[in-house]
Write a protein that binds this DNA or RNA. Structure first.
Lengths: 170, 170
DNA sequence: AAGAACGTTTAGTTATTTTTAAACGTATTG
DNA sequence: CAATACGTTTAAAAATAACTAAACGTTCTT
């Protein structure tokens, strides 16, 4: 391998590692980013073994990671006739990934958070009702007020995530 | 503890746990969400020991977690005269937290990702230049094209994060 | 100045997550 | 139908992250 080739191999590997660190920092695990980066730097589809070899990890890890990526539409399964292997290629349109994959899961998390808010809010209202006029009542009513604000913000965020203008910007 | 009180204690604890799970799912760790939820349901500032007792964890964990939360402006240190303890209260304006804390760190991550993109892009361009006309050259030029698109998207995202309209919506 | 009350750091432990090797199931080939 | 080539599952190992107890350094109190 000559100098130029080595330089490219180095750059490529650093990019893959950076991808891994990035997804890691979002709590998605290292494999996800590494696999995606690997496929992103391939202009032709790759099979599981290619990926596993390329990243020096087990095929099992790749199998799991690839499935996750597929769920987010970050990666696409390619059928090559005459070959039994599953091939994968990276979705290069980040807008698709963001909209269909990541923002979706964000919206879901936001939703369960909202449910928890509603639960505790109704509970604190009940508590407040049971302490009408006394000092503890003030305590509960204060908290109820906060929770109401929180729910308002929750709605605002939800709206933003579904805002067509914002979506268009991606 | 009577029935109503027990119901409130339960709801409260479930809320705290849900907070922990939420931050966990974002890769921020469980403590962060639990501490924040605890303070959020207190209408008066709490010291480290209060929090540690309330969550049944060590003071060391709380000390670390609280510092993290402070960095995001999600929690504020309160000085109560005549008391040497540090008290903390939750920032109840989620807009502040999002803008000053979370989006900031998101922007930073986006930025380092952009740097990596630029690095690998310049490297692939060099590689392409070294293979002018041959088949490998096409390979490199294909990848270069992708990376250019990626950088474009990166810029778009960056713009969105700094978009005043979006900021106003929070 | 000694003692007590803090918050922080750190070294070690525990818990969790990630990764792997091997077993497995299925489809394909000879 | 036996052998091979796959992708997936799973149980265990390895790596990582979270958490704690104890030691520490400060600041306050007496």
């Amino acid at each position: 391998m000559n100098n130029a080739e080595q330089a490219w191999a180095d750059a490529r590997w650093r990019f893959i590692e950076a991808g891994g660190r990035t997804t890691q920092s979002f709590g998605l695990g290292r494999m996800i980013g590494q696999i995606y980066a690997f496929l992103y730097l391939s202009d032709e589809p790759r099979c599981l073994d290619d990926i596993a070899d390329g990243l020096a990890v087990s095929k099992a890890s790749v199998s799991i990671g690839v499935r996750q990526l597929e769920g987010w539409l970050a990666v696409r399964k390619i059928w090559i006739k005459g070959d039994r292997k599953d091939f994968y290629e990276a979705e290069t349109d980040f807008g698709v990934i963001l909209r269909s994959g990541l923002l979706d899961s964000l919206a879901k998390k936001l939703n369960t958070a909202g449910e928890q808010l509603a639960l505790v809010e109704s509970s604190v209202k009940e508590a407040a009702a049971g302490h009408n006029g006394d000092a503890d009542g003030d305590h509960f009513r204060n908290i109820a007020k906060r929770l109401k604000e929180a729910r308002k913000f929750h709605g605002k965020l939800n709206g933003l995530l579904n805002n067509p203008i914002v979506k268009r910007l991606l």
